[in-house]
Amino acid sequence: MASGEKSNGIDELRKELLALLNGGQAHATFDEAVKDFPEVHRGTVPDGLPYSAWQLLEHIRITQHDILQFSAPPTGGYQPIEWPAAYWPQSSGPSSVNAWDASIAAIHKDREAFEELISKPEADLYKPFRWGEGQNLLREALLIADHTAYHVGELIMLRRLLGIWHK
């Protein structure tokens, strides 16, 4: 196979990963799931569910940030956080009026940073990291997409239970 063919395949894979990370190909997007979420219901835990929309939102943010840190650790290296305690907020509701929007902004910022990682032409999607247990950039991209999609579905179900999903 010529090197140009290999490059085109990787470019196509990067393009598909970016589309997957942004969601919406087969279901509602993250942004649609959190758009106009009534402030009064952000901390509501519906009967039969163990979490609120706030807890789901923060879990998405914390997990995605951890995966970004794992994939591109800062100078000091990757510092794992405690599972499961550090991945879920204790409080069912945001600590302030601005916390909801700040969490959404942080999710966007970290997703953009991860997209930059996989978009770099020199980034090897298949090469295992020097740390971890054989994970690579491709696996981490798929993990972010899968994890986020799972919890977006939960956010929509939560909205349906609360009677606030109007799509």
Rank of each mutant, 00 (worst) to 15 (best):
E140H: 00
I118M: 04
Q79Y: 05
H147Q: 06
P128C: 08
V34W: 02
I164E: 01
D124K: 15
L49H: 05
Y150P: 01
P50Q: 05
G132E: 02
Q64I: 11
E5A: 13
F37A: 04
D110W: 02
A105S: 15
I118P: 01
D110M: 04
S96R: 09
A99R: 04
L20A: 05
W131A: 09
E115L: 07
G134H: 06
A145P: 02
K120H: 12
A33L: 03
T148A: 07
L57Q: 07
S119F: 09
I104M: 12
P74W: 02
S96L: 06
P74S: 11
V152L: 04
F114W: 00
S119A: 14
A72Q: 02
A85R: 13
P46G: 06
D101Y: 11
Q79H: 11
G134P: 04
E112N: 15
I81E: 00
W131M: 10
H65E: 11
R130K: 11
L56Q: 11
Y78M: 01
E32K: 15
K6R: 14
Q90M: 13
K15D: 10
L17V: 01
T63H: 11
W54N: 05
A102E: 08
L57G: 08
G23D: 01
L161K: 13
A106K: 15
A102G: 03
L143H: 07
H151I: 07
H166W: 09
A53G: 14
Q135D: 03
G43I: 07
I104W: 06
G134T: 05
I156D: 00
E58T: 15
S7N: 13
L56P: 02
N22I: 08
L13M: 14
G48R: 12
L142D: 01
A85L: 14
A26T: 15
S52F: 08
E154I: 11
W54A: 08
G48M: 08
P38Q: 10
E115F: 01
S3G: 05
D101Q: 14
L68F: 05
A2F: 08
R14S: 04
Q135S: 07
F129N: 02
E122G: 11
V40A: 15
L158M: 09
S3L: 13
P74N: 09
V34M: 07
T44M: 12
Q64S: 13
V97M: 12
F37W: 05
G24C: 04
R159W: 01
F37K: 03
T29N: 04
I10F: 10
G134D: 05
S103D: 03
Q55I: 13
G132V: 03
P38A: 12
R160M: 04
W100L: 13
A141S: 14
T75H: 10
E12D: 11
K127R: 12
A106P: 06
P121N: 10
T75P: 03
Q135C: 02
T75Y: 04
E122F: 09
R139I: 07
D66M: 08
F70Q: 00
L137I: 05
D47M: 13
P38D: 04
Y78R: 03
S3R: 12
H151N: 09
W54L: 09
G9K: 13
K120R: 15
E116G: 14
S96Q: 06
S52H: 10
P74G: 14
R159S: 03
E154N: 12
L56R: 06
A141L: 06
E16V: 09
I118D: 00
